[in-house]
Design a protein around this nucleic acid. Structure first.
Lengths: 238, 238
DNA sequence: AAGTAATTCCGTACGGTGTACGAGAATAGC
DNA sequence: GCTATTCTCGTACACCGTACGGAATTACTT
């Protein structure tokens, strides 16, 4: 990110954020809802990228004044948190757990990837993550249930969850960047020339060999499935 | 990231960036070097976080006017690229390959983690990555060499490299966030209360069980090593 | 020696960002 | 009706990346 740092922010209380009282008894009634705001922000990010998600932009999209958002959200960072949890509601995998934890884990990972391809800004937004929202916790719950047959202890199961999420996010980020680069043939060609030049200097024989070998075409789906299989099959059942 | 998007940027030619002519024949001689600029930016990011890295700040740190940096770098994004490649020179793992590719891969991953702990902004900066700089290519070369005994084809070896890097980055990002949160006991307590409240509502039995189980203390090093072993041991040689 | 082209240096300025502040508006309880 | 409470949002500020253009400095050409 060229994003700000994560080391000095005045974070928000997750209790305040996620389990807020249903309605204040007094005062002017809110004209919008966090749900609606999150939905608008997500739509914006989907259409124009995370960079287009601005307080002013989101507010105007929803028909509100710029500063009104701050009644619902203390921070822009929190808005992003809301967005993440909003889309997290989408990846439901019906029929889990099946008892075959490896298959379940793979199904979950495929759902995560589908979600991230649908919302390409997600992998980039995830690293700054603060707390897990309710939708994300629902998802966590499913993964933990799927991992029950492994007899891993609680901590280890949480680790596997974050390992899996991190893997998928990293992979999809790569995938998205790659497909974006493919849209600009000039740049792709320049990059290829650069790598070729490096390979030609003799200092990188392994790289040269890899580049020289004809890359047989594989679809992104196949590549992901292959890597995922490698990873999941290697996980020890404890 | 709450960072800008990666889908519409006017990228820079990697040839222009990385294999620039040694010196222009004419014109005023440069007062600084990309190396020095990158070093200053890295020092800044190490000390105050990636958010403190602004063009003006870096320039003043080096004793230059704000706009002078644009003679060396077309973009702020490119500056970050420079920073990444600058620190990539640090993770040398002597004596590779040994022939035991799993052990080599683990050693490499540990070196990567050490690097990222030394430069906590790195995991956050990585997702926007454009091209691989020379230092990073040196590192890639080592990993490819280590993977030679696997007889994986070139594409698969590149995949393993990015899988490994992504895994380490994701894990360290988590680690850094966690240790930052530990510095604010109020927030950590609030988060714990929030999770306890969610667990208490009965809708997340698996989560409740995990939270109820006493977490036996493990060091971050152990945790990382365990996850890494799980992953690497699972990689197929084939 | 003089001129010209190339390159770096950097002050100024512009549009855009997150958000602090505070004055108004709308509601509920007393 | 009064007051407390909450949402609304115009204005303002500091800061960001960077476009622009003139001054400074060098090397090549003549």
């Amino acid at each position: 990110m060229a994003r700000g740092d994560a080391s000095d922010a005045p974070r928000v209380d997750p209790e305040e954020l996620w389990l807020r009282p249903a309605r204040p008894r007094r005062g002017r009634p809110p004209a919008f809802s966090r749900e609606a705001i999150a939905a608008a922000a997500v739509a914006l990010a989907d259409a124009e990228g995370l960079g287009a998600v601005t307080m002013r932009r989101v507010a105007s999209e929803i028909g509100a004044g710029a500063m009104s958002l701050y009644s619902y959200v203390p921070d822009k960072e929190t808005l992003v948190e809301l967005m993440i949890d909003h889309v997290s509601g989408e990846h439901v995998v019906p029929g889990l757990p099946t008892g075959d934890w490896r298959a379940d884990l793979k199904a979950v990972a495929h759902a995560q990837r589908a979600l991230m391809l649908r919302h390409p800004w997600l992998p980039a937004a995830l690293p700054g993550r603060r707390t897990l929202g309710p939708r994300t916790l629902d998802f966590l719950e499913v993964v933990l249930a799927a991992l029950r047959p492994t007899r891993l202890d609680g901590g280890a199961r949480l680790e596997v969850f974050s390992l899996l999420t991190g893997f998928v996010a990293g992979h999809v980020a790569h995938e998205v960047a790659r497909s974006a680069a493919a849209g600009e043939p000039d740049r792709a060609a320049a990059e290829a020339r650069y790598l070729a030049a490096v390979a030609a200097d003799g200092g990188h024989p392994e790289l040269a060999e890899v580049l020289a070998a004809p890359a047989r075409p594989t679809t992104p789906d196949e590549t992901f499935a292959r890597l995922l299989d490698r990873m999941v099959d290697g996980l020890d059942a404890g």
